[in-house]
Amino acid sequence: MKDYIEERVLELARYILDTNSTVRATAKKFRVSKSTVHKDITERLQEINPGLAAEVKAVLDTNKAERHIRGGLATKEKYHSRSSK
């Protein structure tokens, strides 16, 4: 694996742990695709640092479990802002 990819993988992992960020938010922050973030975190990080991969997986699993709630809140806000105008 190239050095710059390894550095990116570790930087993405640290960011996700520090901020409890989602894959989408992380991709936006680092200006890479969601697919890249997902592959880096699920496959490449496992090869580089399995312990860190487990920690990041826990954060992503939590985000995945909560996403239906965030989606519902976003929809509620959308219609609430429409009715206020």
Rank of each mutant, 00 (worst) to 15 (best):
E77F: 10
E47F: 11
T36K: 02
L52Y: 02
K85D: 12
K64T: 05
L45V: 05
A53L: 01
D3V: 05
E66K: 14
D40R: 02
D3W: 04
T75C: 04
D61S: 13
R24M: 11
E7N: 14
T26A: 00
T22M: 06
H38R: 10
L45G: 05
D40E: 02
G51C: 03
K57G: 02
S21C: 07
K28A: 13
R14S: 13
T22R: 06
V32E: 01
R67W: 09
K76Y: 15
R82G: 07
A58K: 07
I16H: 00
H80E: 15
A74T: 11
T19H: 12
H38L: 11
Y15E: 11
P50C: 11
V9Y: 02
A65H: 08
L52N: 06
I41L: 15
R67Y: 12
E77N: 14
V59N: 08
K39N: 10
V59S: 12
T42W: 01
A58R: 10
T42F: 00
A13P: 04
P50N: 08
H80S: 07
S84A: 04
K64S: 11
K2C: 10
N20Y: 06
L52D: 00
L52M: 13
E77W: 09
T62N: 10
V59C: 13
K76D: 12
N63E: 14
H80W: 12
S81K: 09
K64D: 10
I48S: 03
K29M: 09
G71H: 11
A58Q: 12
K28M: 08
N49Y: 02
R24V: 09
D3R: 07
R82K: 14
S83A: 11
K85H: 07
D40M: 01
L17S: 02
Y15M: 07
S21L: 06
H68S: 07
Q46L: 08
D3L: 06
K2A: 14
D18V: 07
I48C: 04
V9S: 00
E11R: 14
S33F: 04
E11L: 11
I5H: 02
I16L: 02
S81I: 07
D18K: 12
T36V: 15
S84D: 09
M1K: 06
I48N: 03
H80A: 11
T42D: 05
N20T: 06
S81F: 08
I69L: 15
V59G: 13
T22G: 04
